[in-house]
């Protein structure tokens, strides 16, 4: 295993990846790389395959074609080095368990089969809860936490894994401004410690403030690279099509050229009406 490293200098290397979800391919022949030590955002319209991409990287959805390596090795060999924060809605928060217990679950991988978590594990979990400012809620049943608190618990569960690369699926969705700031600060600290942080993100307006690396996705890779080089009106329009108008306002238009301003404006008019049913399929049609 160790003698055969494929692109070891990259935190994440994805080559020719095609993935289908419920029988329909949602990612076609994806190629991209993420270097270590960056805080990267994955953005794209609904149905662009962002979550599917993360799940496929983590081996949760088998690919139809292509391969993925993390620091030069496939995921199976690197499990211990990966932290994962799924979407908050992916679990049942009425489950009979406490915040501390959920965080302890992050350590199950290291414990392996059959071994029970002990005092040492509970202490690490408690420290992780402290890092996200949730130590007072350790013994609380998880449905008694607010949405932002639940998200922090999920984040703590990933922190306790002490991974080298973190995948977070929409960690800022549906949380209040204070929690969002707290989450971003923690992620930045991880990045500053040399870890790689990869976030599926839904809010284009904060991409430039929060992240330093960007992958724009819509079924294919629209653009990838540093945020300065990829966060352009052309790339965003190419990924979002008409949808872009409803995501933004000045922040985007001020960056776009005068030509972009015109077309952005026109599209705002025609997409405003069908905003609700602007599904991924629509966008794909428009952009292709």
């Amino acid at each position: 295993m160790s003698d055969h490293l494929h692109e070891p200098e990259l935190a994440l290397h994805v080559e020719d990846l095609t993935v289908s979800y419920h029988g329909k391919p949602v990612l076609w022949d994806i190629d991209f790389d993420i270097p270590p030590g960056v805080m990267a955002a994955i953005v794209g319209p609904n149905g662009a395959g962002k979550s599917t991409l993360i799940k496929s990287v983590l081996g949760l959805i088998p690919p139809i074609a292509g391969h993925v390596t993390l620091f030069g090795r496939p995921y199976r060999a690197q499990r211990r080095r990966v932290g994962y924060v799924p979407q908050r809605s992916s679990v049942d928060w009425d489950f009979p368990t406490t915040a501390l217990d959920v965080v302890t679950m992050g350590l199950y991988g290291r414990l392996g089969w059959l071994r029970w978590p002990g005092r040492k594990e509970r202490r690490s979990a408690m420290e992780a809860l402290e890092m996200v400012g949730m130590q007072d809620f350790a013994g609380r049943q998880i449905s008694q936490l607010s949405g932002g608190q639940q998200q922090r618990v999920f984040l703590a569960r990933a922190l306790v894994q002490n991974a080298d690369i973190y995948f977070l699926d929409e960690p800022m969705a549906g949380v209040d401004a204070t929690t969002e700031r707290a989450i971003v600060n923690i992620l930045r600290r991880l990045r500053d410690e040399g870890k790689t942080v990869i976030v599926v993100h839904h809010d284009l307006q904060t991409v430039r403030t929060y992240f330093d690396w960007l992958l724009i996705l819509n079924v294919r890779v629209v653009a990838q690279g540093s945020v300065e080089s990829t966060y352009t009106a052309d790339n965003l329009r190419s990924a979002y099509g008409g949808q872009i108008a409803l995501l933004d306002s000045e922040a985007f238009i001020s960056r776009a050229g005068s030509e972009g301003r015109e077309s952005g404006h026109d599209e705002a008019v025609d997409t405003g009406a069908d905003r609700a049913d602007a599904a991924g399929a629509d966008v794909r049609e428009r952009t292709s």
Partner: peptide
């Protein structure tokens, strides 16, 4: 873990 969060259970092996 498998009951609460099957995805994480799978990711952790």
């Amino acid at each position: 873990l498998a009951t609460f969060d099957a995805a994480l259970a799978r990711a952790l092996g």
